[in-house]
Design a protein around this nucleic acid. Structure first.
Length: 529
DNA sequence: CGTCCCGTTGGTCTG
DNA sequence: CCAGACCAACGGGAC
């Protein structure tokens, strides 16, 4: 059967390793490449901010241009996705819709709705996995139905599965010539809108440009240095270097401008030629597998992006403090290292992984004791590489709510950054107000004398805020809170377990009595004293 | 069931 | 300058 097909781009904004689009071209006499720009969805479900809008529109423009070069086009149709599909299926006599399979609940729901429409209107739906290395369902099965909760265990499952599927071949003009492009006139009617058309602020000083072409260009630049690729070890990269010390390819992966499978195999080839190469978790390939790890856990965990109702997430009564949250979000904490990070995030939409750690630890268990969900929302809006599963997973990690539990390890907002950038060049770049501050004080400018502040041209408290908390005091306090939370949690777990096993009141009482509760060393010391 | 090992990237001190 | 011990001590998972 020769189909009339709509290929629906959602992520996967690329022509290389695009299995669903390839299948569309091979099975159709006409293919309509469509991107549905659903602004309400983007704003209320995806929560994308201005920088991400720019990145998306640039990616669409690049995709349109590449499709045109191959004799096709891209139709960007604005509207609610279900009614757009319904309208055009009838208008264009569509018999097939192809799309990438995605794992986020809202994208799954979208696909289910399109399948429902297919049954109603009589078209077929073909979805193929293009955004991840493995089928997460297979990983779950091999782990006995539950997601592996440690990376090590996850890797062991992957070893059973072997290498991921190889990428499909690049699309060529011949592929597109075998079937007709959309009618003339449609391309003009459904062009890629400009930011101003969508009332998005036009100015953008982000150094990241969206699109497959730019992504491939950056990828080639990095892969050219084979020694660097082979010896890459993540923790040794520098969070506050003025240019990214990692690949900075994440925005392109999150939107599917680059294929993770293609990258995986490019890395494998380089490793095969190198005498020595680093290994997961710290290697470059290991980074791709971290992404996969969080996808897997997220796909099998209810309420993964929330605390409430999330079975793997520690339940904590975080403070609600709109003012402190706002100051954190808008780079006004008074800790230059944290504020520089948040400034880079706001201006460029990308910060180093360790910088994310520092900022996240500060907001949650480190200093402010504000819910990781709030931080996650801010990152979702501002990070170009924001990804549903990875974002939530890392916020739980950093807040010691799941995956990571050694809550005594707290990032110091003063000393952590100073280790790799003692002169504070990163701070000077993103907080120009502190440009002339002496290096000695730049991570804690409030310790400079009035005279020194005057000389540096920045009075703390007037030109730049005082720190919003005393880090030492706050982190000690939070440490105690975290200890309490964990003891409480144990008590609750004990209660529910015994409830299920043995409802007898006597047993409950016995197990909940003081001497049967676990004691921290600190508690034991107090007792002795 | 208990015990022990170890974990992608803290901080501090010592040798 | 760097490696390693220690801090205080969690929880998943192996045994």
């Amino acid at each position: 059967m020769r189909h009339h097909t709509i290929h629906l781009f959602r992520k996967g904004l690329r022509l290389h390793d695009n299995p669903a689009l390839l299948a569309a071209l091979q099975s159709s006499e006409v293919v309509y490449p469509v991107y549905i720009l659903d602004r309400a969805f983007m704003t209320s479900v995806m929560h994308i901010g201005a920088l991400r809008w720019h990145f998306l529109l640039q990616s669409l423009e690049d995709l349109r241009s590449s499709l045109c070069q191959l004799g096709s086009c891209l139709l960007v149709i604005q509207g609610e996705y279900e009614s757009v599909v319904r309208d055009h299926v009838q208008k264009w006599n569509i018999t097939q819709v192809t799309l990438d399979e995605e794992m986020e609940p809202f994208y799954k729901e979208m696909e289910a709705n399109i399948r429902g429409l297919g049954e109603e209107l009589g078209f077929e739906v073909l979805s193929l996995m293009g955004h991840s290395l493995y089928n997460t369902q297979r990983i779950l099965e091999l782990n006995g139905g539950t997601p592996p909760l440690t990376y090590k265990r996850f890797l062991r499952i992957l070893a059973l599965l072997g290498d991921p599927e190889v990428p499909v071949r690049n699309l060529t003009a011949e592929d597109f010539q075998r079937c007709s492009p959309p009618e003339l006139g449609l391309a003009e009617r459904y062009g890629v809108p400009l930011p101003t058309d969508l009332k998005i602020p036009p100015e953008s000083i982000s150094p990241w440009r969206g699109g497959e072409s730019e992504g491939l260009h950056r990828l080639e630049q990095h892969l050219a240095d084979q020694g660097w690729v082979a010896s890459f070890t993540k923790p040794k990269t520098i969070p506050n270097s003025l240019l990214p010390s990692t690949t900075g390819l994440s925005p392109y992966f999150s939107m599917g401008c680059l294929s993770v499978r293609s990258f995986f195999y490019r890395l494998s080839n380089i490793y095969a030629q190198a005498k020595h190469h680093s290994l997961p978790p710290v290697s470059l390939q290991g980074q791709l597998l971290w992404r996969e790890f969080f996808y897997t856990v997220a796909s099998a965990t209810p309420n993964f992006t929330k605390m409430a109702g999330n079975p793997i997430c520690l339940q904590i009564r975080w403070y609600e403090d709109a003012e402190r949250l706002h100051r954190w979000k808008t780079a006004q904490t008074g800790f230059p290292w944290i504020d520089a990070i948040m400034t880079q995030l706001r201006q460029e939409g990308w910060i180093h992984h360790l910088a994310r750690h520092a900022a996240a630890c500060f907001l949650t268990r480190g200093d402010l004791w504000i819910s990781w969900e709030e931080g996650m929302k801010v990152f979702e809006e501002l990070l170009l590489d924001a990804d549903y599963s990875i974002n939530a997973g890392n916020w739980m990690w950093l807040s010691a709510s799941a995956f990571f539990h050694q809550y005594t390890r707290i990032f110091c907002p003063v000393r952590f950054g100073r280790r790799t950038d003692p002169e504070g060049e990163y701070i000077r770049k993103y907080l120009p107000i502190l440009k002339n501050f002496p290096s000695k004080y730049i991570y804690e400018p409030w310790t400079a004398s009035e005279e020194e502040q005057k000389q540096a041209g920045c009075i703390i408290g007037r030109d730049y805020p005082f720190p919003m908390v005393d880090h030492k005091e706050a982190s000690d306090h939070n440490l105690q809170l975290m200890k309490q939370v964990r003891e409480e949690q144990y008590r609750t777990a004990q209660l529910t377990r015994d409830d299920a096993d043995d409802p007898m009141e006597m047993k409950l009482k016995r197990d909940l009595s003081e001497e049967n509760l676990p004691k921290t060393k600190a508690a034991r010391m107090t007792e002795q004293a």
